[in-house]
Simulated assay, not measured.
Amino acid sequence: MARPVLPYGRQTIEDDDIEAVVAALKADFLTTGPMVEAFETAFAEKVGARHAVACANGTAALHLAMLALDVQPGEAVIAPSITFLATANCARYVGAEVVFADVDPMSGLMTPDTLADALKRVGDRKLRAVLPVHLRGDVADLPGLAALAGDAGAVLVEDAPHALGSTMTFGNVAERVGDARHSAMATFSFHPVKTIATGEGGMVTTNDAGLAERLRIMRSHGMARPEGAEPWWYEMPEPGFNYRLPDILCALGLSQLAKLDRFAARRRALAKAYEKALAPLAPVVRIAARPAWSDPVLHLMCVLIDFEAAGVTRREAVDSLREHGVGTQVHYIPVHRQPYYRDRYGELDLPGAEGWYDRCLSLPLYPGMADDDVGKVAEALKAVLKL
């Protein structure tokens, strides 16, 4: 009989979540109803932003952010190479060109130094936005990145799907990811492996009422309703998209959001247990570096492994760990390596991204893990790496 495998991530759906969805199914609105605004209001309050706009998924959130900023074809957007494809793709959706920034090889995060290098490669294009990614849940240096972006005439858009619940301290000021103190907008995803789940879903937070209104218009076909017009009247100044999030999923989101503090505490406890359990495996195995200002709710438990020192390839380690009942994943293949971007921009030398990719592996991390699962993962890793 095959051994059950711990996945690297998994949703936590409980009876009250199911009840919330059933109640929404029995209500008058399945979409574009009151649950959408309720979810948006609760989310904005939770992260400390003035506005939150729900949408179909995290990719839609990034695309809407580019539309809200009116990024134009031929303009430039800077994104780190260590991220999911959507961070770069959102710029291409609006015809902008992507300039890839390198990352710190120990944390996977864009830094002021790697952003400064990317700025040199923007050339004569107009830079509109910089998209730092809060990889794993750890927070990038927002004040440092915002200062550089501002000097270049651009704004930050935080790609924050990994970091719901994460907090940070800059200059003795406690902040929350999503409060948009340093950025024009922050985007989130509610994919099942994220901190809260709606199945698929996304959110954009901002403190700018004008941006919030444009986000809402562009998520619903570009339809605007002029003040004082007949109740059936709408106008479309420009085409938008059907990026709405249904009431059914917003009901699940509201139920999940009420558990965020519990989910966050559990993830932090599991991360602490990993720190203790993996310490004896150093220096071959190291947990990804954490910036001093960051207090993350980790979405991913990323470790950096010296596979050469261990005498095994990553593929061999992944397969052997699965035989031991441990599922893993790699986050991420550098986006600048993808055929589309390589064909468009040529070969890039981003040693930090390559160094991160060569060693990274994501271990199981989700609230439903049992207390002794972390120890089992550590023992499996020790055996597979022959430590």
Rank of each mutant, 00 (worst) to 15 (best):
A186E: 09
P112D: 00
G178Q: 12
K259R: 15
Q329D: 12
I82T: 05
D358M: 03
L257D: 09
Y366T: 05
A96F: 01
A163C: 07
V297Y: 08
E158C: 15
L85E: 11
A68M: 05
V285T: 09
N242E: 14
F39I: 08
V377E: 04
L298V: 00
M66W: 02
P296H: 03
L215A: 13
L278M: 10
N242Y: 15
T169W: 07
Q256C: 00
L254S: 13
L361H: 06
H331M: 13
R176I: 10
D319R: 03
L115S: 10
V384C: 09
A147D: 12
E19K: 13
I305Q: 06
N207S: 09
F241H: 14
V130D: 04
R219V: 08
E97F: 09
G325Q: 09
N57E: 01
G178P: 12
A118L: 10
D138V: 14
L211W: 05
P367E: 10
D372A: 14
A76S: 11
G153S: 05
P132H: 13
L387N: 07
M1S: 14
T206A: 10
A61L: 11
A60G: 06
D138S: 13
R10C: 05
L109R: 02
S220K: 11
C250G: 11
L257I: 03
G368S: 13
Y234E: 13
D306R: 00
T83A: 15
L348E: 11
V318Y: 01
A288K: 10
T205G: 08
S294Q: 04
F39L: 15
I305F: 03
R50M: 06
L164T: 05
V99N: 04
R315P: 05
A289P: 00
T205D: 07
L67Y: 02
P334E: 02
L249N: 13
R344W: 01
D17Q: 07
S255I: 04
V384L: 07
C55W: 02
D295L: 01
G137I: 09
L321F: 00
L385R: 07
E40R: 07
T198G: 13
P339G: 06
G199I: 06
Y357H: 15
T114G: 05
A383D: 13
R92I: 10
A279T: 10
D17L: 01
G108I: 03
I196A: 04
P246R: 01
G178L: 11
H134C: 15
G222S: 02
P283V: 01
W232P: 04
V47M: 02
Y366F: 15
P351V: 02
A310S: 05
A229N: 01
P7A: 07
S220I: 06
T32L: 14
D247E: 08
A265S: 12
H331A: 14
Y8D: 07
A269D: 15
T111I: 08
G222D: 00
W293N: 03
P246M: 02
V133C: 13
V71T: 14
V103S: 06
A129D: 10
L278N: 09
S362I: 12
A212M: 05
A44W: 02
H191S: 14
I248V: 15
D343S: 12
L131G: 03
L348Y: 00
V22M: 13
V122E: 04
V36K: 13
